[in-house]
Design a protein around this nucleic acid. Structure first.
Length: 587
RNA sequence: CGGGGCGUGGCGCAGUCCGGUAGCGCGCUUGCAUGGGGUGCAAGAGGCCCCCGGUUCGAAUCCGGGCGCCCCGACCA
């Protein structure tokens, strides 16, 4: 492409809304433009990089047996009613009516359509396993888009769906994706880690996220530097301290004026927070045959720990949780700020395991200004559910090796889910097995956010002058600059033509601009290799060659330029290839 | 949904408190000079001051209502 013909310009000043550096550079270099909150246009440079990313993904998917399809962006609402998600998903699912007043939705994901296809196309075990995928626009009306391309409302995603007879087949395809995803991200030059994650609104039995570790991310992860344990905050566990073998003491009511918080209580009684039990009151929305209803949840955790709402919601199979009101708290016999499970009624008591192995805790007396000393689970109250409902924290002991966990931020660029039969059962997508038995197809779903991946690469490969694309995803391979001089123009023109004829992707700056402008733009756009034809370079015997990631410049004789460039591209590619290697599966 | 900020040529901003001819830098156009790190000089083009209503002789500025964008939180396959 001749830069004189190129659509899109570089900017000296980035628009004010750009807050992360990678986003600023993508705007300044003319890759993307924002149309509305969380809605972007991709200009030619970005489009070329996206196409390369997509093709890397296509190859990886095809390599594990994937077949590309395209599924619609607009779905009938009835299909989403059949799986129940019409009712369970809130405003992030955009609904509208067509001219005949039929309910429609904008696709935020495609499980429904896949299951619908499956029920029409798959009838026999002979047609399984299968893997289909597509690269398609999705719409999620996020409450708060942010950080440029990291969290958007309209986005392109590769999503694949595995179809199997049984769990065993699913596991095989799941593991194939696990490796394929590492291959994809490594070919794009992006370092990622895989972490266990919550299955969330997708439902299912196992899920991993692929995370690019960076402060701009909005996922909090807990990782162990010692053994490699890594998990999303939503599911991260840690090793509970050993039970303190302390004989139960008699229950004792004590006056504790003005101590509605654990902080104040521990200070007032001069005890560590770990010797207290904290009551957290939530209202859970639970669905059963009769529809949705609310259930009061009385969660008990040790005073030094925090309730993890995802874990709690999973423990009680709630669709959603909200804090209980003071009136609701009093209605079960508790008192805000002084609550304990001792003597409450009409609620589901969920107790964290750390509480059940601790004895003689201080807990509320369900009366303002009073607490009980020596509260013991099993003697003073019974839990309905005992499980892990607290968040891991920085410094907590690793569940695998006891080493101290570290909290880090990251961006989720991909995920893999074992869905099971949730969607196929709901839609009646069944097949006949060898024995003639009708069984639901077992599904997995696997996503990669394409734009988000581009944004992460931009964030990772940059310096103070601009972007520095890895060769595999760079919009062009070579940035050719021509500077004024008697012979420079015809030589550069010929080089431009010859490089392209040799299969090299060239971005040719043929504009009438000052040298400084051209060099600044080249650095900003970040194409990996740069060639300059100038009076000076010709005097020195050829073209000046420079890599974006190095300050070294060299002169390459004109008749060797093409071979040199091809060799350099190959060398850069080889560096990427060494990163693409098997990664052991961690469940 | 709660809290905060912002909305003025393409981009970045000043002007708003205290109402009186709409400004600056960058970019853009033209010319001359320059020609290896966003060059210099000169002359230009370009604005429903987010929208609607109100107050006023007069509103970018004051008042009311809306919309949009950004940040923090809530939320988030």
């Amino acid at each position: 492409m001749r830069m004189s013909q190129h659509f899109g310009q570089t900017l000296r000043n980035a628009p004010a809304e750009a807050d992360t550096e990678g986003y600023r550079l993508l705007l300044r270099a003319g890759f993307i433009r924002q149309l509305a909150a969380g809605i972007f246009s991709y200009l030619p440079l970005a489009r070329r990089s996206l196409t390369k990313i997509e093709n890397i993904i296509r190859q990886a998917m095809n390599d594990i047996g994937g077949q590309e399809v395209t599924m619609p962006v607009v779905h009938p609402g009835d299909l989403w009613r059949e799986t129940g998600r019409w009712y369970t998903i809130g405003d992030e699912l955009t609904r509208f009516q067509d001219r005949n007043e039929r309910d429609m939705v904008l696709a935020m994901t495609h499980e429904e359509v896949v299951a619908d296809l499956v029920r029409h196309e798959i009838s026999s075990y002979r047609q399984l396993p299968r893997l289909i995928y597509h690269i398609q626009t999705k719409w999620r009306d996020e409450p708060r888009p942010r950080a440029g391309l990291i969290r958007v409302r309209e986005f392109t995603m590769k999503d694949s769906y595995s179809l199997d007879q049984d769990e065993e087949g699913l596991d095989k395809q799941y593991r194939a994706h696990f490796q394929a995803y590492f291959d994809i991200f490594h070919r794009c030059g992006l370092p990622v880690i895989a972490v266990r994650s919550d299955v969330g609104m997708m439902g299912g039995s196992m899920a991993h996220e692929f995370v690019y570790l960076n402060e701009i991310g909005e996922d909090t992860l807990f990782i162990c530097d010692n053994c490699g344990y890594a998990a999303n905050r939503e599911v991260a566990t840690f090793n509970r301290p050993e039970a303190i073998d302390e004989p139960p003491q008699p229950l004792e009511k004590v006056a504790t004026p003005n101590t509605p918080t654990i902080e104040a209580l521990a200070q007032f009684l001069d005890i560590p927070k770990s010797k207290t039990a904290k009551a957290v009151f939530m209202m859970a929305t639970v669905a059963d045959e009769t529809g949705n209803h609310e259930q009061f949840i009385f969660a008990v955790v040790r005073g030094d720990m925090e309730v993890n709402e995802t874990k709690l919601a999973n423990a009680v199979r709630a669709k959603s949780l909200r804090p209980a009101t003071e009136a609701e708290i009093r209605a079960i016999g508790a008192e805000p700020g002084y609550g304990s499970p001792v003597g409450v009624h009409d609620c589901l008591i969920v107790v964290d395991t750390a509480v059940t192995i601790s004895s003689n805790l201080v807990a509320g007396a369900n009366e303002a200004g009073y607490h009980y000393r020596n509260v013991n689970h099993g003697r003073d109250y019974e839990a309905h559910i005992i499980t892990d409902i607290v968040s891991a924290y920085a410094g907590a002991p690793c569940p695998q090796c006891q080493h101290s966990l570290k909290a880090v931020r990251g961006v989720e660029v991909g995920n893999i889910f074992k869905l099971g039969t949730r969607y196929t059962e709901a839609l009646g997508a069944t097949f006949l097995d060898k024995d003639g038995q009708s069984r639901p197809v077992v599904m997995g779903s696997y996503g990669v956010g394409i734009g988000r991946l581009l944004a992460c690469i931009a964030e990772h490969y940059r310096d103070e002058n601009g972007l520095k694309w890895p060769i595999t995803v760079a919009p062009y391979q070579v940035h050719l600059i021509v500077l004024p001089g008697d012979e420079t123009a015809p030589i550069a023109e010929k080089l431009y033509v010859d490089l392209q004829a040799a299969g090299v992707e060239v971005f040719y700056d043929d504009r009438d601009e000052r040298p400084g402008v051209k060099f600044k733009d080249a650095d900003l756009i970040g194409i990996p290799l740069r060639l300059t034809i100038s009076k000076r370079s010709l005097e020195q015997g050829g073209a000046e060659y420079k890599r974006r990631d190095s300050d070294e410049r060299s002169i390459v004789p004109l008749d060797e330029v093409i071979a040199h460039v091809q060799a350099e591209i190959k060398a850069l590619q080889a560096v990427i290839d060494t990163e693409v290697k098997p990664v052991p599966f961690r469940a």
